[in-house]
């Protein structure tokens, strides 16, 4: 693509894709911005005109706002900690030569193929149900009173469900990273007198640094927007109302599109703050 001719041809060829992508991204964004400055109540009068920053002020000052931000961060943080921690352990385990390795690997990865709605329903009804759930039976077997998971430990339950879904992803990425670790490095460390845990800390973990940042980055992007898991379990009650869920409630339950859009803009800002923070981290890790 060196000549003038081929360059302009290339631009022409790429134009449809670029225009489609731009439209895809820009139209909803611009509409969200537009609505966020309007009082727009579809079932109660429709478009009631411009209101400036009213929606923004109302969204932040509502008593639900800060709890929703903290719920979002707790869920994202919790899931990240669990998936990265267990992911590293599982990756190390799966990297050991063992019988039936292929099948075990597929089993470990399979939760990723289950749709979020389905997995949340399965967890809710089969495991966490206080009467018929497997956990309830287990608790009763040991003579304890069954826990009402989704009301008594609601955030933890959601974190558990979402972690179960994302653990395969983390494991997969970390497994490929661990497979690329030079065996001679571990052997050199062994000869240098490093015990197994020291080899893990000084050699394996730094080697995984890059993969861990990638996992954290990608998962954060998706976890900031989890919805189905909350929708089919707690419906946002018991302190599980995340920012996404709050916006959903404002738009669809309260039928206040303007207020919801303002919330959407806040969500974009929050996501960007986290993204910048993470990019810094990744950048530092990728430079090495």
């Amino acid at each position: 693509m060196a000549t003038q001719n081929s360059r302009s041809a290339a631009r022409l060829m790429m134009a449809p894709a670029v225009i489609l992508l731009l439209g895809w991204m820009l139209v909803p964004l611009v509409m969200t911005l537009l609505f966020s400055f309007k009082k727009y109540l579809p079932l109660r009068g429709g478009d009631l005109g411009w209101v400036g920053f009213d929606n923004y002020v109302r969204f932040v000052t509502s008593s639900a706002f800060w709890p929703s931000v903290s719920a979002t961060l707790i869920i994202v943080g919790g899931v990240l900690a669990i998936t990265v921690g267990l992911g590293v352990l599982l990756a190390i385990l799966l990297n050991q030569p063992m019988w039936g390795q292929g099948i075990v690997r597929i089993l470990v990865i399979s939760p990723f193929f289950v749709m979020p709605t389905v997995s949340a329903l399965v967890w809710k009804n089969m495991f966490m149900d206080p009467v018929n759930g497997l956990f309830a039976h287990l608790w009763k077997f040991f003579g304890a009173a069954p826990v009402e998971w989704l009301s008594q430990a609601s955030l933890q339950s959601i974190i558990l469900i979402v972690s179960w879904q994302w653990l395969p992803f983390a494991t997969l990425i970390l497994l490929t990273a661990i497979q690329s670790l030079d065996r001679e490095q571990l052997e050199a460390a062994e000869m240098d007198g490093a015990a197994p845990l020291q080899r893990f800390g000084y050699i394996t973990l730094p080697h995984l640094g890059r993969a861990i940042t990638v996992v954290v980055l990608i998962q954060t992007i998706f976890l900031l927007g989890i919805f189905a898991e909350i929708f089919v379990t707690t419906q946002g009650s018991f302190g599980t109302r995340t920012l996404t869920y709050l916006i959903y409630q404002r738009v669809l339950e309260s039928q206040n599109v303007g207020l919801g859009s303002a919330g959407g803009v806040y969500a974009i800002i929050l996501a960007n703050i986290i993204a910048i923070f993470l990019m810094r981290m990744v950048g530092k890790n990728l430079d090495k």
Binding site: Q185, A188, M191, P206
Partner: peptide, 20 residues
């Protein structure tokens, strides 16, 4: 005897330096 206790040092073909 485990490798570290043999008092031998090895230089590997790939050098096996710790990259980080």
């Amino acid at each position: 005897v485990p490798p570290a206790k043999r008092g031998l040092a090895m230089v590997f073909q790939s050098y096996a330096l710790y990259p980080h």
